[in-house]
Design a protein around this nucleic acid. Sequence first.
DNA 1: TTGTTTGCAAATCATTTGCAGTAAC
DNA 2: GTTACTGCAAATGATTTGCAAACAA
Lengths: 128, 128
Amino acid sequence: MENKRNTEQKRIILEALMHADHPTASELYESIRDENPRLSRATVFRVLGQFADDGVVRRLNLLGSDTRFDARTAPHAHCHCVRCGRLTDVFEGDFVPLFSCGEVAGYAVLSAEVEFSGLCPVCRGAEN
Amino acid sequence: MENKRNTEQKRIILEALMHADHPTASELYESIRDENPRLSRATVFRVLGQFADDGVVRRLNLLGSDTRFDARTAPHAHCHCVRCGRLTDVFEGDFVPLFSCGEVAGYAVLSAEVEFSGLCPVCRGAEN
DNA sequence: TTGTTTGCAAATCATTTGCAGTAAC
DNA sequence: GTTACTGCAAATGATTTGCAAACAA
């Protein structure tokens, strides 16, 4: 937290991320470039990485896609639709206790990632 | 499964993967190149990707590393040591039911990925 | 034969980095 | 004034791809 400066770029990037839906760094960059032509892609990568390292945002490594970012830091799982690509945050379910489990296989657990893959409500209905 | 041919390369790659510890495609390539100088890196990427798509092996997207592959297809979670990088398969625990849950947030769940991050048994003891 | 697979090299593409100018504190 | 931050362009590095030769069925 120390040795960090508040810049307009960081504000813009965090603001955009909070209103975006799990974007990749490049997607976020593209969503703000029109409004901020001077803000570079490299800065988006740098700032998001910094935020993630500082715990301000969360980095997501989902199957079959580039690294995505999530402004929601509260523990939650993700559901990924294999048909339409939709990504849904899930804050409640049987997996919640995993986020606070202290030990697994002898490891002192610090965090847990849970990702479900399947068909979203819309695509379930659309399947023939 | 059909339209697939059995080649020496595929056999070598699967064999090597079964004896390796969650390697990346490049790591696996490097581990077999000495014995098989003619087998190319591109083939390792292609064959592993094909195996993964066919469900013969599992693709892993762990935080902070390239795509890794796992020859163990039975449902299991992974523990990742943030200090030494060790990766451990875990077949038992509270998360096991997740692998067979049918529905989450309206999604028809097909599979689940669970990754724990923390300190492995060795590193827990080594921490000052 | 016939279509799949491979090796090789070139091409992609996301992400990172060097550096000099800019700005936060 | 210091030193972090940024933009730009070049570099990196994993993964993919085009294509002709090699090979499984």
